[in-house]
Nucleic acid binder design. Structure first.
Lengths: 330, 330
DNA sequence: AGAAAGAACGCAAACGTTTGCGACATGCTT
DNA sequence: AAGCATGTCGCAAACGTTTGCGTTCTTTCT
């Protein structure tokens, strides 16, 4: 069977296509009687408007593009869920793309979004993005682009992210408050702005408030690497009393190492992490963490998108607040 | 700035629209010289074809719809990642929708897919779906629909799922092999066919191979409920030596209860789970599990989709094999 | 009674492509 | 010189909508 069109309905009813179109849109020009007939038949024939035709005619795709390095991630998936939910409410759909951290795929995905004439773009940079030009095309075409989480450092762009500076401060404060003396702190890829911000605020806070604390800073590329680093440092310095993890991925690696070494939390070593909140609660005792909510970030990103679409031309950098969630590990 | 079109290029070059179109598609009718000029200008003007126009003209949307209850799920997200990856390679994009287990939203999402004239549909049923008719519309319109994981029981549909019967058998076998005497087995929503299959195979295997084993069967609606059930039963019967969990969600709840009761694994109690493989490795010792790979299921679903699109009319029910992954918990 | 106003509907263009077919020029064959 | 194949290109229709404007008919006012 083939899809019902306005034409088909018009032929059955002996009316013009435009009348059918207007009737279905409840246009005042059309009489109630006609509207009833049209609506009834449309339902009977299971009419669904052709989105492509509408897009072509109206130039409104009602589709958002959303790109993340990977959707299999406790942070991004809640962000996506949040944006998707909000978009649906407003009659938009979301085209989700994953870049797999590959600049090539990233470009291809952006091209796809442009071909589909997306109404707006949510983008999270991969960790090895050097060339922003494919992203900036959207701006040239007046398509709003909201960067989230891993945002570029350039000025004049719309960005939403966690209050990363605050994240670093709060984490450091929590550790200082417990009078810890020797901290192994594990960060992620050091050329991402998110890492830079968290790391510098973290260090700075220690420098100001507790300069005597021993601070070992390391960068882990993945979970395994984090585990390796923990093993390595515990063999060298048995004085370490606290481990700080910048992300879930790193936390998982660190915890593996700790469990392998059969260390007790928090008597042997304290743990503090930054997380969406899911992974920390899987451990026992549950891990204390600074909460970064993907869900809230999604809401914020969506709000900003809508602001852009309704004409606000103010390029803004917004952040969502964070808080410290005390568990049993620190 | 506005998007470049074939018309714009044709005007600049003093050629017709059709020539531009053919030149960009490397049509043999067009001379090499013209092709060069066209391609060059198209690049300079950053031309990207309008997907809506193409879809309207060719009736090929090159888009797949994919609906899951929620994308924030260790199983689904790998399934999605898998389908998305494969689709991209074949020039398709994926429109991902989440139903939030709400039949209303489910219908809306399906409507959206129809409006976008998706080339095919991947669907995972919500746990309280009673009416399949919105799904079957796709069949009437010759749009292939592949059900995955939570599949309907009706005949004559395309379904891919884990070999759920085997899952139940393997799980039971593993427990029997360890000569366990009293098993608390936690299943999910009992009106989902996936639960039915796993549960009946599980029970049947015990019945045949080890009728003397004490089998306590419970159904948990979520993580918390699972934790509650574990607490409840351990207060009553202190003879339980094994807990079986049908899913990650249930495992997480059960583990929480066990840790709260300060039980040792596996000396106090053994654990066996069914999982994608991520969650079990977070615990120490790592949890033994029967592996159900969302990634592989995605590949299979995609293969079947492509088969449908290339004309195969055989409605098939396919399953992907499972294996037992031994950890330290059983 | 005549004019103006309103109600209900149809015409046709436009959105950006693809594609069958026809048009024209050129070179080659007898 | 006439015919034919070949190489390049343009015309125009079609896909399914939306929408400004025009048309027709009925009603209402003076």
């Amino acid at each position: 069977m083939t899809n019902t069109t306005l034409k088909k309905i018009s032929e059955v009813l002996g009316l013009s296509i435009s009348t059918i179109s207007r009737a279905l849109k409840n246009h005042p020009d059309i009489s109630e009687k006609t509207k009833q007939k049209v609506i009834e038949l449309a339902k009977a024939l299971d009419y669904e408007p052709n989105a492509s035709a509408i897009q072509l005619r109206t130039k409104h795709s009602k589709i958002f593009g959303l790109m993340v390095p990977t959707i299999s991630n406790f942070f991004y998936d809640s962000f996506i869920a949040s944006v998707e939910e909000e978009s649906r409410k407003q009659g938009y759909s979301v085209m989700i793309l994953q870049s797999s951290d590959d600049p090539e795929i990233e470009r291809e995905n952006l091209k796809l979004c442009r071909q589909n004439r997306v109404s707006g773009m949510f983008a999270c940079l991969g960790s090895n993005v050097t060339d922003l030009s494919s992203f900036l095309r959207f701006k040239e075409l007046d398509t709003p682009i909201i960067f989230f989480d891993k945002v570029p450092e350039e000025e004049g762009l719309n960005k939403v992210s966690m209050a990363d500076k605050r994240v670093g401060e709060i984490a450091a404060d929590a550790i200082i408050l417990q009078k810890k003396k020797s901290v192994l702190s594990l960060f992620g890829n050091s050329n991402m702005s998110i890492t830079k911000k968290r790391e510098s605020a973290f260090k700075e806070t220690f420098h100001l408030r507790s300069p005597s604390t021993q601070l070992l800073v390391e960068h882990a590329i993945d979970s395994q690497d984090a585990a390796r680093l923990v093993h390595h440092h515990f063999e060298q310095h048995n004085s370490i009393d606290t481990i700080f993890c910048m992300s879930d991925e790193i936390l998982i690696g660190a915890m593996k190492a700790i469990q392998e070494m059969n260390l007790n939390i928090p008597s042997d070593v304290s743990i503090l992490s930054i997380s969406n909140g899911f992974i920390p609660t899987l451990y026992h005792p549950s891990i204390s963490y600074v909460e970064t909510s993907g869900y809230q970030l999604g809401k914020l990103a969506f709000t900003q998108m809508m602001a852009c679409l309704s004409g606000s031309d103010a390029m803004m950098e917004m952040t969502v607040d964070v808080k410290y969630i005390k568990g049993g590990s620190l």
